[in-house]
Design a protein around this nucleic acid. Structure first.
Lengths: 215, 215
DNA sequence: GAAATGAAACGAGACGGTCCGTATTGCTGA
DNA sequence: TCAGCAATACGGACCGTCTCGTTTCATTTC
């Protein structure tokens, strides 16, 4: 008597759900965002338009869900950054990889669509932060904390600020197409960030008042 | 007989042109961007729709022109940053002012609309860079160069990179609504930037191998 | 067990509404 | 007189709703 509801159509639902999300991703990846229509998604997914609107309230929501699912695929597997023991090495690795990702046209279009959605919708932005950005940031901060423990990063550094100084320039340069995203550029961002937040040159225990370098 | 063309309607043309741009700015400032329609602009400007399309090829172009005109208004007057002689003071002044600007809802909507346009249209982005971003950046770089000359900034620093490290975090935090844009935050960005690109402390400048804490 | 039953979900697509960008029309002002 | 204009009708694209006949599947019936 656990069956309160009627027939179990969950498998059917899941299949069409996946088809819709995959069709959406494919379309966003291969065309300009304005050309992605709900009708096109439905046709590509082999699905009726109503099936889409049964699950999501708007086109924005569908696109957003499709892009969210991109990073949720690997079940519960949480992100983890490389940890060779040397922060500079690890950061350069990650930043170079990030810069390369942005060079891929498909990825470019996907992320541009995502940014357009969240820049103009505070609710979607909050959901994006909660489900995608926060977990990733936590992983990055975990790596930074481990660097703090071995004295490769200022123990007092605000990690949110460190991440922003590190990533925001890359993001802005990509979004505004204001310069090339080369490996050298990625490296120079890491260098700048480490100069700003690297270990204090002084006798570094807990800081606060001691200021041996006063120049 | 310098009049090659017919009757001199230039004053009329100019009047309707200004009316269109002003109506556009008003609408973008007060409503969500999707609600701004060409018909609404025409009605508000007391102008026929065709008059708009006679001058601009698309809605995007009108909106873009309206926002461009925002910063072109003060005739040929070029931008100049404060120069008290102390870079830290000047940068904090500018960064605090920038952070405050973003807090104004009208300004927020205007810049959000502008960013949406240029993020998805490489041509508009190029025009934006040429007509708005570049001149502003040049003014900022001029201030930085003067700081380099008096030894308040590393003479070898890449000024484009300095500006990115300084402004991009603020921009990203605003765009993604990922944190408050306080004066303290503005200051901490200046502090970080100056630690990264400030005058070299001496000979053994670049970090990397010196490791008093090796645990 | 296999066939019949009924409800939920579905594919297809017609429909109203909004908006873009074009075409038409009659007016107006120099 | 006539170029430029406001007003507005229009075609086309798309969104989101609604309808209709069909498919799928748990349950019932033999």
């Amino acid at each position: 008597m656990a069956h309160v509801k009627g027939p179990d159509h969950s498998r059917r639902k899941e299949r069409s759900r996946q088809a819709i999300l995959e069709a959406t991703r494919a379309l966003v990846a291969e065309e300009a965002y304005e050309k992605v229509t709900v009708e096109a998604i439905a046709a590509r997914a082999g699905v009726g338009k109503q099936t889409i609107y049964r699950r999501w309230p708007s086109k924005s929501a569908v696109v957003f869900a499709a892009l969210l699912a991109l990073s949720e695929d690997p079940d519960g597997q949480s992100v983890a950054l490389p940890d060779t023991g040397d922060l500079e090495t690890d950061l350069k690795l990650v930043m170079r990889a990030t810069a390369e990702e942005f060079a891929d046209p498909s990825f470019d279009r996907l992320i541009r669509a995502l940014n357009t959605e969240i820049a103009n919708d505070a609710e979607l932005a909050a959901e994006y932060r909660e489900k995608l950005a926060q977990p990733l940031e936590e992983a990055k901060k975990a790596r930074l904390r481990s660097a703090q423990e071995v004295g490769q990063l200022d123990a007092d550094a605000d990690l949110d600020l460190v991440l922003e100084v590190l990533y925001a320039p890359l993001f802005q340069r990509w979004l505004h197409r204001s310069g090339p995203l080369t490996a050298a550029y990625a490296d120079s961002l890491v260098d700048a960030t480490l100069r700003a937040f690297g270990p204090r040159t002084g006798v570094g225990s807990t800081p606060g008042e001691l200021g041996p370098v006063d120049s």
